[in-house]
Design a protein around this nucleic acid. Structure first.
Lengths: 136, 136
DNA sequence: GTGGGTGCAAACAATTTGCAACAGC
DNA sequence: GCTGTTGCAAATTGTTTGCACCCAC
């Protein structure tokens, strides 16, 4: 292991971390690593995938980003943009972010059977507005 | 490609498919590939992982099984056991099957924004009844 | 100046595929 | 017997790690 700074050390501010973090923030939805890397290459032509992975791991440890898995594919998105869920369009394959939540399960809710709910994740599958229109 | 039978051909009934399918049906919850393989080895000592993967793909194409991803890990479960969701216990790591659904989104529902919902998936995270009791 | 960070390539892990032997139908 | 299926190993794909050089502090 060479990266992983001990918790007592503060990570340095580097250009690659700044760029990767910013791109994640600016993204319309969760991105997969190849896509994130591709976008970052625009500003840092020498950037290696390894750095993308290392930075994502760092961001996750800091709670600034997190991973979502959709259809077996790992995607990353910036945290702190409020409670939301995802919609996966089976026509165009894109993943959208939904800001309305279809469940009422505040943390601490006791679910039937005695399950203490601390968080929930919802993914909707179907056809996005755009594709629905095109298939009419 | 050597497996993937054309849609016009019906898959043969082999012992490995029977066993894998039966184990999936009998499972208490979704299983990962190594675990499914391990269980199957009890009846088919020569079974290779490749066959497990190939059979799972076949079962998924037939709609008899499907994959769920939890915490980045791919698990498989038999279909047709009714609408249900999953609960992941952060204490014991186990995955439970929940038979009550916290959302009201029948297929065909139009979600705010114009998203046509065909299916949904919900995963709850927290502490299972057993672990909750032990931590009191 | 020094220790963490980065790029690159090799190492790993998970899943897929080629191929010859084998088994349903 | 013909054709799909399996086991094994090699090949892929996605992700992590070792290491020498570089840069933020």
């Amino acid at each position: 292991m060479s990266a992983a700074p001990a918790s007592s050390l503060r990570p340095r501010g580097t250009r690659q971390r700044e760029v990767i973090g910013r791109l994640l923030q600016a993204a319309e939805g969760p991105l997969d690593v190849p896509e994130l890397h591709r976008r970052a290459l625009g500003e840092l032509p020498k950037l290696g995938v390894a750095t993308v992975y290392r930075t994502l791991k760092l961001l996750q440890e800091q709670g600034a980003a997190h991973m979502v898995t959709l259809d077996g594919e790992n995607l990353y998105e910036a945290s702190g943009r409020g409670h939301h869920h995802h919609f996966s369009c089976r026509a165009c394959q894109r993943v959208f972010t939904l800001h309305t939540c279809p469940v009422a399960l505040p943390a601490g809710t006791i679910y039937p059977g005695g399950f203490v709910v601390e968080a929930h994740e919802v993914t909707l599958y179907g056809v996005c507005p755009e594709c629905a229109k095109n298939s009419l």
